[in-house]
Amino acid sequence: MGDLITAIIMGIVEGLTEFLPVSSTGHLILTAELLNFKGDRAKTFEVVIQFGAVLAVLVLYRKRFASLLNFKIGKGSGLNALHIIVAMAPAGACAVLLHAFIKGELFAAEKVLIGLVAGGILMIIADRVRKKPTAEELDDITYKQAFAVGCFQILALWPGFSRSGSTISGGMLFGVSQKAAAEFTFLVSVPIMAGASGIDLLKSREFLTTADLPLFLIGLIAAFIVGMIAVVTFINMMKKIKLSWFAYYRFALAALFYFILF
Rank of each mutant, 00 (worst) to 15 (best):
M1V: 15
D3A: 05
I8G: 00
I12W: 02
V13D: 06
G15V: 09
L16G: 03
T17Y: 02
E18H: 05
P21A: 12
V22S: 02
S23L: 05
H27P: 06
L28H: 02
I29S: 00
L30S: 00
E33S: 11
F37R: 02
K38D: 15
G39D: 10
D40L: 03
D40P: 13
K43E: 14
V48C: 07
A53G: 08
A53Y: 08
A56I: 08
V57G: 03
R62P: 04
K63T: 14
K63V: 11
N70T: 11
F71V: 15
K72E: 15
K72Q: 14
N80C: 10
H83Y: 06
H83A: 05
A87V: 12
G92K: 01
G92Q: 03
C94R: 00
A95L: 08
L97D: 13
L97I: 15
L97V: 15
L98T: 14
H99K: 13
A100W: 11
I102E: 01
L106G: 02
L106W: 09
A108P: 02
L113M: 05
G119R: 03
G119F: 09
G120F: 08
L122K: 06
M123Y: 12
D127T: 08
R130Y: 07
A135I: 14
A135D: 03
E137L: 05
L138G: 07
I141P: 03
Y143C: 10
K144E: 15
Q153F: 10
L155D: 05
L157M: 12
G160K: 00
S162M: 06
S162N: 03
R163V: 09
S164K: 01
G165I: 09
T167P: 03
G170V: 14
G171I: 12
G175Y: 00
Q178Y: 11
F184N: 08
F186S: 01
L187M: 14
V188A: 03
S189H: 09
V190Y: 08
P191C: 06
I192K: 00
A194F: 14
G195Q: 02
G195P: 05
G195V: 07
E206S: 05
L208N: 02
L213N: 00
L217C: 14
L220R: 00
L220C: 08
A222T: 06
A222W: 12
F224S: 09
I225C: 14
V226R: 02
T233G: 04
T233F: 02
F234V: 11
I235Q: 05
M237H: 02
K239Y: 11
K240Y: 12
K240P: 03
K242G: 13
S244N: 10
Y248N: 03
Y248M: 01
Y248I: 05
L253I: 09
L253Q: 00
A254N: 01
